[in-house]
Design a binder for these strands. Structure first.
Lengths: 179, 179
DNA sequence: TCGCGTATGTTGTCATTGTCAACATCGGCG
DNA sequence: CGCCGATGTTGACAATGACAACATACGCGA
């Protein structure tokens, strides 16, 4: 995305991100190690520093990708769905599904071992995910399917619910139930 | 709690937990360091190992304390409050207030860098917090203030919402608003 | 009262990690 | 074609989590 064209390796940045995600999935965000990522990508332990300022920034990059995927998942879920309310619901389900499919990724995205303020890209990606929700809520309001008012507030409420459910589901406290 | 009576230091375990919480509050759960905790408690870097098997277990102990505090906060908030529904609401508010008052502690409790399965004490404390919620919901149902059904499901829903709100508030995405 | 076992704390050590600095390589631009 | 800078490597260092061996002192039993 941001990197023009890597020289030696072909596309190290992407390869590193890939290894990073896989590693996080295997050992969790805590045991995650920069050097192991480098090892898996088949480069020296310092190569990553040409693409990320430090460990934190690399994690932030993973989170950023996660937000983008999440946004896409929500959009895809609403596509070819009739009814504004139904689309909102589908987006919510997609959200939870994403969380269940990639618990560690989800954790990295929201349990922010990194300070969001210092990672504008991540913050931006997160904002996009949120605005996806907001516009779905606005659609519902336009069609009088939802009481009018600040769309942001409603979206926040929706997000809160969905997020809470997803989180608790991940933690294994939610008995599964089809819907 | 579990420790009978420490010898040399007086009560190292408690002192360590105290330092640990303070440190987490200062630098976050990620930069948290066992050795720094020991330093602050004025003991050698290996003293903590007499009270906690490893770093993870120490964090789990901190989380356990957090669950207990949370439970107490919810109970305290419902005390001398009239109306089952109102009590449920007060508990929810107490939940959010706790999260806002101790964001890092809250983070440690739920973003579990530790695997809950392997820390029965933490799991138990968490369960107690949840059962507090469940009984509040049951009260509402008994008084027909809430549709009947599986109390657990309703409690989960309540928890999800409250938790989601708290989490998003911590992350700074929730515009504050008095209620 | 006294000595000893054991819970508690310390010193020493090791592999691993994040990060910095110096060096090597190679692709494209002039 | 030669140089510069982007990319990657090697080497180093302090800090960390964890283990092992050693020290200390409380409190029980004789």
């Amino acid at each position: 995305m941001t990197s023009p064209k890597p020289y030696h390796h072909g596309n190290l940045r992407a390869a590193l991100l890939h290894s990073a995600m896989q590693l996080i999935r295997e050992v969790g965000p805590t045991a995650f190690t920069l050097r192991e990522v480098a090892r898996r990508a088949g480069v020296s332990h310092n190569a990553p520093y040409r693409h990320f300022r430090n460990k934190e920034e690399m994690i932030a990059a993973v989170a950023t990708e996660g937000y983008q995927e999440l946004t896409e998942a929500m959009i895809a879920a609403t596509r070819e769905q009739a009814g504004a309310l139904n689309r909102l619901k589908q987006a919510g389900l997609a959200y939870v599904r994403f969380a269940l499919r990639r618990p560690e990724h989800f954790t990295v995205m929201f349990d922010a071992p990194f300070s969001e303020h210092q990672h504008p890209n991540a913050a931006l990606a997160a904002k996009q995910a949120f605005s996806t929700l907001v516009s779905l809520v606005e659609d519902c309001q336009k069609k009088k399917l939802l009481a009018s008012g600040d769309p942001g507030s409603y979206a926040l409420l929706a997000w809160s619910m969905v997020h809470g459910i997803a989180k608790l589901a991940i933690t294994g406290r939610l008995p599964y139930r089809s819907t």
